[in-house]
Nucleic acid binder design. Sequence first.
DNA 1: GTACTCGTAAACACAC
DNA 2: GGTGTGTTTACGAGTA
Length: 713
Amino acid sequence: MMQESARETISNSSMSQNGMSTLSSSQLEAGSRDGRSSAGDMSSEVSTVELLHLQQQQALQAARQLLLQQPGSGLKSPKSRDKQRPLQVPVSVAMMSPQVITPQQMQQILQQQVLSPQQLQALLQQQQAVMLQQVRTLALTLNPSHLHTCPYEEQQQQQQQLAAQQLVFQQQLLQMQQLQQQQHLLNMQRQGLLSLPGPAPGQAALPGQTLPQPAGLSPAELQQLWKDVTGGGGHAMEDNGIKHSNSGSGTGGGGASPPISHHSIANGQSPALNHRRERERERERDSLHEECGGTHPLYGHGVCKWPGCENICEDFGQFLKHLNSEHALDDRSTAQCRVQMQVVQQLEIQLSKERERLQAMMAHLHMRPSEPKSSPKPLNLVSSVTMSKNLPSASPPNLPQTPTTPTAPITPMAAMPQVPSILGGANVPSMGAMRRRHSDKYSMPLSSEIAPNYEFYKNADVRPPFTYATLIRQAIMDSADMQLTLNEIYSWFTRTFAYFRRNAATWKNAVRHNLSLHKCFVRVENVKGAVWTVDEMEYQKRRSQKITGSPSLVKNLPSSLGYGSALNASLQAALAETSLPLLGTPGLMNSGSTGPMGGSCHGLLGGDPSILTGLSPPGMLGGSPHGLLGGSPPTMMHSAHDGFNGSLDHLDTNGHSSPGYSPPVHMPIYVKEEPLNMDEDDCPMSLVTTANHSPELDDDRELEEGNLSEDLE
DNA sequence: GTACTCGTAAACACAC
DNA sequence: GGTGTGTTTACGAGTA
């Protein structure tokens, strides 16, 4: 019963350390008796420090009374205590504060466990506070001005007192640290957390065991602590990880790692709370280890980064708990996730636009017409710098370093349409499906790709990122009369690509193989022998089938943007905004305003055609954006015609008009059966290309696509 | 795992 | 017979 009341008293006094409670007259009297308050003679008012000190005294008095009432506590009555004190405490200290519990008393308190952990904690804090205050008071009395006015003997005496007090302070500090450790262990024992024998790693020894050397505080540290205290720093104790001075918060865990596990001190909280705090701190320590290995993207700076949450989580474990509890899989989280997805999409669009702008700027700066032979070179800055067109073995591995968009993962093969043959060539023999995919499926226009990089392909031993079929078709379309003999095709290959100047047997065989294999290549008996032409219809059918085979055009769209072209990304963004995937391109192209440079920058146009190939369905691509290209820049027109009927011969590789342009010649004389499953009946055309149009309907198709493009404007 | 595309190699036939 | 041309088959790699 009385123990209860005593606990209450201590608890209240502990809580009142912040000076919130009022002081009774007796307390004030007690405060004025201790002599320490004489330092307040300088001021008639009771300072905050004095009030605090009085509160501590009150708490200590209550504790002592409680101890006295405990049978066998060993503590004497106030009278006997007063008699004992001079024997236990140096005289110089005795004048400071009779309320300071001696180490022996503390030990008794601890051993007999007459106080609850909270009470012990409060007691320790108060002891610390009292001692700190005493030190400060002493320091005040020894300030330089005071010393200056005192006689030498007084100074000597005061210095001795100071030294003695320092020694006592250090001793008491050590004692308190030991007590704190013991109390912590007691708490753990009571809570069943600590199993005997042997302390847990990093923890102090058991009460009965020999404590480690003064709680790990070396004399130097103690000296530093003393300096800090005498320096008057309010947070002096914190520097050593001890925050129990006056704040009362005592949460511990300062910057410097404390020599003792004082952080486990409960600060007058319930054992359960202490336990929880202990576990949290352990988790915190664990989280520190976790943070070394990796961090959660939704957690940072102690705050949950879930959109709209910003819940404060002390440690990673708490965050995980919070994440699992507050952001579990439910409708709300799902909705928030969707919102976040939209946010990301918008940001990606914005990023694409900015990247596109950067690309255009780079293209503009590196594709100057004044550069005689560099104009066809890649627009890519890196490639422009690293690649030497005069080196047949120009190594392309440096090329695919163009920035990529999150939504359009760049492919190592055709990272950029402007960048010729990023891979391949002798240096990269494993040029395979990737190049094929992109070159054909995405209908990358060969001419448009070659045109700006003509010199590059001509001189660099780099394999162009196109299929044989595409190259053959391009060769034929490049000819004046849209037909070539096999030997002329060979010549075109070797003339256009340095890569095909070697391994002739291999690639020539491949050329023949493709000519025979693909139905789109038609062999025509001519006066000068057999020539090869292109059945554009078949060609486009074949391409369109590849595209239509995909799950959705929308899905293909981002993939087609995988070239890494900023323009493509821009168009993707534009299409996303207009919700007109694929169909948006022609209009955008026509508008001439969607390009980063308004569609009028010639240097940029070297890569621009990829927009058509990247976004347009094959049918459109190959088929014919004829009508779309009125007023389009040469290269763009080039690519468009390339897609339409291969009538690229009216344009040279630099995109200039050629008078020898002739309309597409369709001579389906010996139409072979394509080995592929590309029968006309099961060949759904793309959105733009009509499914069953004939070559004679090309004009209609052009009109149709032209209308489409207009609609998209 | 399957189907498809593409490149490559090879075999074969035919014409010059 | 050698060469070029054309056709076909087979296989591996990569992708959807």
